[in-house]
C-alpha cells in the first residue's frame, strides 16, 4: 500500500471506526480476560460443582498483584519503544529489603515502603540515564542492571527467609477479600490522568516518533528517564506486594517477572513498536496470565506442561490479535 492510499483510508474513516481501531487492542485484551474468567468459572464448576467464591477470587487477585505492578511499569517503558529486563532484579532486591528490614508498627511499615519505592525509582533512574544520556540500547542496559540488582538482592537476603509484618500482608494482600482490586482501580485512574498530563503525552510521542517528538520540543531525554524511574518504582511496588503475599522474602523470586511482565504487556495489546497501548490492557493481560494457570490446573493438565500451554497461548493470542486487527483495519 502506498502512503497516498493510506492517507485516503485515514480520512474516509468515521469517528467511530477511528475509536474502534485505536482501542481494538484494549478491547481484545478485555474480551480475552472475560473469556478466560468464563473458562475458569466453567472448569471450576465442573470440578467442584459450585462457583468460585470469595476465597478463590481473593487468591486470584492477590497472586496477580505483583505481576500487575511489574507489568504496568514495563508498559510505560515499552510505550517509549524500550524494554526493561531489570524488572526481575529490582523485584528480587525490593522483596528482599522488605522481608529483612520491615518491622511491625505503622512507622516502620510506612517508612520502609517509601524507602523501597525510592530505591526502585533510583534504580530506574540509573537505567534511564544510561539509556537517554549514555545513548545505549535499553535491552542491553537493563540486561546489565538486572545482573547488578540480582547481585545486590543476594547480598541483602542470601537465603530465602525473613518475614513481613502480618498487618502489612493484611493491608496489601488481605486474604479475606479481593481488596487488592482497589489498587487496580487506583492504577486505572492514575493511568487515565497520566495520559492527559504533558509527561504522558510526551511518553507516547517519543514512542511514536522520537525525532518528530524532539522537533516538537519534547524533552526526550528527561522524559525517558522519567519513564524508567516510574518503571523502577512500579517494580519496587511489585516487590512489596510479593513480600506481602508470600509473607517472606526470596532473592530469586522476582526473576520470573522479566518474562511474565513482557507477556502481560503483549497480551494487554501494547505495541512493541512503541507509542500505542493502554496500561488497562496490561492489567487485563496480567490477570489473564494468572487465570490461565488456574484454568490449566482445573483442566487437569499435568503441571509439568504448564509452560508449554503458557508459551503456546502467548503466541496464539498475539497471532489472533494481529489477525483481528487486520480484519477491523481492512473494513475501514
Amino acid at each position: 500500500m502506498t502512503s497516498v492510499t493510506q492517507a485516503e483510508h485515514y480520512r474516509s474513516r468515521s469517528r467511530f471506526q477511528h475509536f474502534t481501531i485505536q482501542s481494538a487492542p484494549l478491547l481484545l485484551a478485555l474480551i480475552m480476560l472475560a473469556g478466560m474468567a468464563a473458562l475458569y468459572i466453567g472448569l471450576f464448576y465442573r470440578q467442584l460443582s459450585r462457583l468460585p467464591g470469595n476465597f478463590e477470587w481473593t487468591s486470584v487477585v492477590n497472586t496477580s498483584m505483583p505481576l500487575v505492578f511489574a507489568a504496568v511499569g514495563q508498559s510505560i517503558v515499552v510505550v517509549t519503544r524500550g524494554l526493561d529486563l531489570s524488572v526481575g532484579g529490582m523485584i528480587d532486591l525490593t522483596n528482599g529489603l522488605a522481608a529483612t528490614h520491615m518491622h511491625a508498627g505503622t512507622g516502620s511499615m510506612l517508612a520502609w515502603s517509601l524507602l523501597v519505592l525510592l530505591i526502585g525509582g533510583a534504580g530506574g533512574a540509573i537505567n534511564g540515564i544510561l539509556v537517554a544520556y549514555g545513548r545505549l540500547q535499553p535491552i542491553l542496559v537493563t540486561l546489565a542492571t538486572l545482573s547488578i540488582f540480582q547481585g545486590l538482592a543476594i547480598k541483602v537476603l542470601p537465603e530465602p527467609g525473613g518475614a513481613v509484618p502480618l498487618e502489612y500482608t493484611k493491608f496489601l494482600a488481605n486474604p479475606n477479600g479481593p481488596w487488592g482490586l482497589a489498587f487496580v482501580v487506583l492504577i486505572g485512574a492514575a493511568w487515565l490522568v497520566f495520559r492527559r498530563t504533558r509527561f504522558g503525552v510526551d511518553v507516547f510521542a517519543i514512542g511514536n516518533d522520537e525525532e518528530a517528538a524532539r522537533a516538537h520540543g519534547v524533552r526526550v531525554r528527561a522524559t525517558k528517564v522519567g519513564a524508567y524511574v516510574l518503571a523502577g518504582m512500579f517494580s519496587a511496588a511489585a516487590g512489596l506486594f510479593l513480600a506481602a503475599t508470600t509473607t517472606s522474602g526470596d532473592a530469586t523470586s522476582g526473576d520470573v517477572f522479566v518474562l511474565t511482565s513482557i507477556a502481560a504487556v503483549v497480551l494487554g495489546g501494547i505495541s512493541f513498536f512503541g507509542g500505542r497501548g493502554s496500561a488497562i490492557g496490561t492489567v487485563a493481560g496480567a490477570f489473564v496470565l494468572t487465570l490461565l494457570i488456574n484454568v490449566l490446573f482445573f483442566a487437569d493438565i499435568n503441571p509439568l506442561y504448564q509452560s508449554f500451554f503458557q508459551g503456546l497461548f502467548l503466541v496464539v493470542a498475539v497471532l489472533l490479535g494481529t489477525l483481528i486487527r487486520r480484519l477491523v483495519g481492512m473494513r475501514g
Binding site: L259, A263, L304, S307, F308, Q310, G311, L314, V315
Partner: peptide, 9 residues
Amino acid sequence: LGMNGIMEG
C-alpha cells in the same frame, strides 16, 4: 519467548 515456554513445557 513463547517458544521458550513451549520447549520448557
